[in-house]
């Protein structure tokens, strides 16, 4: 794994491209901070007449959520661009076979590629950290929000990079691998809008009778409908992050809370027990990442040893007993330890 990661990072950091991307990225974020600062300062000075009232959100919060959102939108296309070509590109450039004739394990190959792809995106997230800490200084932002925002970005990065790497291991060309990766990434982000729509239908209105129970004047969402909505919301970092933020800002718990507690929902006096969306989102995204990484390892080295514990022997050696038969092999040896001769 180290071999692959070292090699990848060496080539990536060589030349101006990596630093070019970094510079553009930081410039974009800085511009954003200035713009948000300008707008918010004005809005706070002249409150929106259509606003229902209440204090406007503090500058720190707006700055933080704005920057985190833009970071997510920048990372979304960047993460696949570093991993979608990682394996398919080796196939295209005919370097893949050379690596595959070495005893390197599929696991090390895939994890090395993943580590190098993710580490650069993580670098981008880390260099933006000062901007977010700045938001903390403006006041209004809690440390929990900061950490959860940071975590959401990292989980999204891991998932986007893993999915792209998976397509890279399955597809023959970088182009198709990129295409499929971007489709998944787009669904994860744009799909959020549909999810928001659907869950608002489930959660608010009564038009979809099946989701509600009780007489019309005291209808309440069915329990499973609430959990379905939670699941859908957790499918996208946008909605999961957004709703977690809403929950935190209305004083709900960080990890779980009761939705609608004390609101007198008919049949649900204690509301619904909800695991915070960011937690569900993390479990789904990290679980899917683990699955596709596992599949990538299988695709990279499809040929597995048929019967490693009782290997077939060439006929001459067996019949004439020349050279002496190898000693029985220990079964519990890991493949790496078993590599050195008999």
């Amino acid at each position: 794994m180290q071999a692959i990661a070292t090699k990848e990072l060496r080539s990536r950091m060589r030349g101006g491209r990596a630093f070019g991307v970094l510079t553009v990225y930081l410039l974009l974020l800085s511009c954003l901070v200035v713009v948000i600062y300008g707008f918010t300062a004005r809005t706070i000075a002249n409150p929106n007449p259509f606003d229902a009232g209440g204090p406007p959100p503090p500058l720190g919060k707006i700055l933080f959520y704005g920057v985190t959102l833009v970071e997510l939108l920048l990372i979304a296309p960047l993460a696949p661009s570093f991993t979608a070509g990682a394996i398919a590109g080796e196939r295209e450039r005919q370097t893949f076979d050379l690596v595959m004739t070495t005893p390197i394990r599929g696991r090390d190959f895939v994890l090395g590629k993943l580590a190098s792809g993710i580490s650069y995106v993580l670098l981008l997230i880390f260099v933006a950290l000062p901007v977010q800490v700045l938001a903390l200084l403006f006041g209004g932002l809690t440390l929990t929000e900061l950490l959860l925002g940071f975590w959401t970005l990292i989980v999204a990065t891991v998932f986007y990079a893993s999915v792209s790497l998976f397509f890279s291991s399955v597809m023959k060309t970088t182009t198709t691998a990129s295409l499929f990766s971007y489709i998944v990434v787009a669904m994860s982000l744009i799909g959020a809008l549909f999810v928001a729509l659907i869950s608002s239908i489930i959660g608010i209105g009564g038009p979809l009778g099946i989701f509600f129970e009780g007489p019309p004047d005291q209808a309440a969402p069915k329990t499973w409908a609430v959990y379905l909505a939670l699941l859908l919301v957790s499918l996208s970092p946008l909605t999961a992050g957004g709703l977690t933020a809403v929950a935190l800002n209305t004083g709900e718990g960080t990890f779980w809370f009761r939705l609608g507690e004390g609101e007198g929902i008919p049949g649900h006096p204690n509301g619904y027990f909800i695991v915070s969306p960011w937690l569900v989102y993390s479990v789904i995204y990290l679980g899917l990442s683990a699955l596709v990484i596992f599949l990538s390892m299988r695709y990279v080295r499809p040929t597995t040893a048929r019967n490693p514990n009782n290997p077939s022997r060439p006929p001459v050696l067996r019949e004439e007993g020349l050279p002496p038969p190898p000693p029985p092999r220990r079964v519990d040896l890991p493949p790496s330890a078993a590599q050195e001769g008999t």
């Binding site: 090699k7 080539s11 450039r93 005919q94 370097t95 076979d97 050379l98 004739t101 070495t102 005893p103 040929t303 040893a305 048929r306 019967n307 490693p308 009782n310 290997p311 077939s312 022997r313 060439p314 050696l317 050279p323 190898p326 493949p335 078993a338 590599q339 050195e340 001769g341 008999t342």
Partner: peptide, 25 residues
């Protein structure tokens, strides 16, 4: 003496391969 199907890693450790067409990084 090592089977390509049963002990590919042992085989790989014993072989240096140069393909007909290959790329370089």
């Amino acid at each position: 003496g090592h089977s390509v199907r049963d002990e590919p890693d042992r085989v790989r450790n014993r072989i240096g391969y140069m393909p007909d067409f290959f790329g370089v990084y």
